[in-house]
Write a protein that binds this DNA or RNA. Structure first.
Lengths: 240, 240
DNA sequence: GCCGAATGGACTAATCTCGAACCATTGGAG
DNA sequence: CTCCAATGGTTCGAGATTAGTCCATTCGGC
């Protein structure tokens, strides 16, 4: 028996160069609406510290996003890097293009990863004893999605999903959840936000929350699987 | 409502400097027995490529491990960096020391993360249609752990757990599983490998495999939770 | 109207990291 | 015995990245 698992430990130590990684991170934060249009990123000095990079490198990344038209940088007090991103309406063919661009193996990987992370997080949370605050936060996020205007839907949907990992209190799990979400951003953004889809999602979201609040990990798992399988199946259809 | 999830996206882009990260990775590969004592690491040029770093940086890391006595580097054909690590027998107090050194918050984080990843992976795998090869691999790894000599136990236990993530076919999930395992290595290594513990673990491992092969995600989840909770409870006891 | 605080903008020297080329050692094949 | 291939050992210049410092702009408060 050889050691096929060597690769899992001797895998790349760093994702690439700091500049490109930073551009990608900020772009995801913008696309996902973590920093909403019109809002600004944290101040450069603070943001550089959070990202663990130098201010010089951060500024290069900001400059790139500025050139690409995603940021409007203003000097002076109350200045900053303001998000000007406008979520383009998905057009016919976008989804197919996004799927093809990603590649079949990478897509399957991302979907499997997301399923595992979100299932795991939901179950862990369902198995925990939750404080009143935690329960309120979860319900609040659910309500936010349900009340969302179409333009805010993706952002609040992201916030809801992430809350589950976040409420477990594990920074590692939260980071993994954010990572999983980032890997399917472009695909989700290419799916039109339609009424029937939203209704389905709302019911599934509600089932997830109910299971978690009831402390029922099995029901939580089923709800997550059902919710994510819909999206996954849709995307996988483009791989045939 | 502010954006508490900002931190999940604007988190550090890189873990630290390449040299230290590499040392840590190689050390984990050695401690976990991914490269068994007496075996050698891949050739420098190949390994550097796998780790995504330059040969110079890799050599610095190897040198550090050589100085620390974990590697024996030999030149010439059939030379290489040979592992000389010998797993020290856990002594009384090691565990307490390891737990205290890690810190309560980080420990809870690591345990939660591991639970979520392994639960998620097991369920995903249980929900998949497995080939005959995959089923055989899983059973083989289970048998390997059960037949393990005490000195090989941790290594084969690691291999078994990782196989579950690996068999899902998701590189991301496999990497996450390896990461989760690495974060509890020092803790697990501080726990003596005792007969009764091994018997418990063997039964739990068997239950996990049975559930996966039966295509029963719920049973898989329960089996994983039961298995990991034992360890987690033991470690958490040191936090009181 | 001036000042101070908060912000982006620019520069520098030091360090890290890389790719590539070349050297040194070893052991097997012929 | 000689040669060759596989391996570690060494060096160098280029580019990436950093920490630190100081400058420029803006706006609110005095």
């Amino acid at each position: 028996m050889s050691e096929p698992q060597l690769v899992a430990f001797l895998r790349p130590v760093r994702a690439g160069n700091a500049f490109e990684e930073t551009v990608e991170r900020l772009l995801q934060a913008i696309k996902l609406g973590v920093v909403a249009p019109g809002e600004k990123l944290p101040a450069e000095r603070e943001l550089a510290a959070q990202l663990g990079i130098s201010r010089v490198t951060l500024r290069e990344a900001i400059r790139a996003l500025q050139d690409a038209g995603h940021l409007d940088v203003r000097r002076g007090r109350y200045g900053g890097a303001f998000v000007v991103y406008e979520q383009p309406l998905p057009r016919h063919g976008d989804l197919r293009r996004a799927v093809i661009e990603m590649g079949p193996s990478e897509l399957a990987d991302a979907l499997t990863f997301r399923m595992a992370i979100e299932c795991g997080a939901a179950q862990v949370l369902a198995a925990m004893e939750l404080t009143e605050d935690q329960r309120a936060t979860l319900e609040r996020r659910l309500a936010d999605v349900n009340d969302a205007a179409p333009a805010d839907y993706r952002r609040l949907d992201t916030a809801f999903h992430l809350s589950i990992a976040e409420l477990t209190g594990s920074a590692l799990l939260t980071a993994a959840g954010a990572d999983a979400r980032m890997r399917v951003t472009d695909l989700l953004n290419a799916i039109p936000v339609l009424g029937p889809n939203i209704d389905h999602a709302a019911a599934q979201h509600a089932a997830m929350v109910a299971a978690i609040l009831a402390g029922d990990p099995e029901a939580a798992r089923k709800a997550v699987v059902e919710h994510l399988e819909g999206t996954a199946a849709l995307l996988r259809a483009f791989l045939a």
